[in-house]
């Protein structure tokens, strides 16, 4: 049965609306589930040119019988630079710039530089966080299944890796926020280790 003309027109309009913001090749399954909200969130996040804040991270590692707590500052500069500076308990710096990760830390404050793709253990986590900050749906969609819940004032975005290379290490990344600000990043790794990071963003950043 051929669809009636108005119905065909509506379908075409919907299709266009769905397809526009993503790369045609990528199949935005998650986008189809809640298209409007995700688009709007991504759009809001895209407006953020730079942001910074303080964090407190609580890590549960299966090798240890007590959690590890650390704190420091976070900063982000659109579109692809992220920095995490740990101030306590030991100073440490983690920079993701484009494709390159630089870590400074350890007992002798050594510098390690490597490519994002060298270590999926780290790459799989930080790429999801950075792509969220950037409102980069194409990248998110390439690596993760996405689920957005809540509303603009209090949302929660769940990222679950698609690639078997990532699922070996990362189970899920749960990012919560309000409008275009991030409030918390909770990650769960495949071995059961977790990290809960709460964030307080500084006011007055370029938006």
């Amino acid at each position: 049965m051929r669809p009636s003309r108005p119905a065909a027109r509506l379908a075409a309009a919907l299709w266009t609306a769905l397809a526009v913001p993503t790369v045609a090749a990528a199949q935005p399954a998650a986008a189809a589930a809640s298209p409007w909200d995700l688009m709007q969130l991504m759009h809001a996040l895209q407006q953020v040119k730079s942001a910074s804040g303080r964090f407190t991270e609580r890590k549960t590692v299966h090798l240890l019988n007590a959690p590890l707590v650390s704190s420091g500052t976070l900063s982000y500069v659109a579109p692809d630079r992220m920095q995490k500076v740990t101030l306590s308990p030991v100073p440490e710096r983690f920079v993701l710039d484009g494709d390159q990760i630089t870590m400074v830390g350890g007992p002798d404050q050594q510098t390690h530089t490597f490519a994002l793709t060298d270590y999926p253990q780290i790459g799989g986590l930080v790429e999801g966080i950075r792509a969220t900050l950037a409102g980069d749906l194409t990248t998110l969609d390439r690596y993760y299944d996405l689920r957005l819940t809540g509303d603009a004032a209090s949302w929660e975005l769940l990222l679950q890796p698609k690639d078997s290379k990532l699922t070996r290490f990362v189970k899920s990344i749960r990012i919560t926020g309000s409008q275009n600000q991030l409030r918390a990043i909770d990650t769960e790794e495949s071995d059961g280790d977790r990290s809960e990071m709460s964030i307080v963003e500084d006011a007055g950043d370029a938006r």
Partner: peptide, 20 residues
């Protein structure tokens, strides 16, 4: 002690499997 420091750091994910 060094290992504990590394585990808490961002490099923790890299050494976790080999540490034992």
């Amino acid at each position: 002690e060094g290992d504990l420091g590394l585990l808490g750091s961002d490099m923790g994910a890299l050494i976790k499997d080999s540490l034992p």
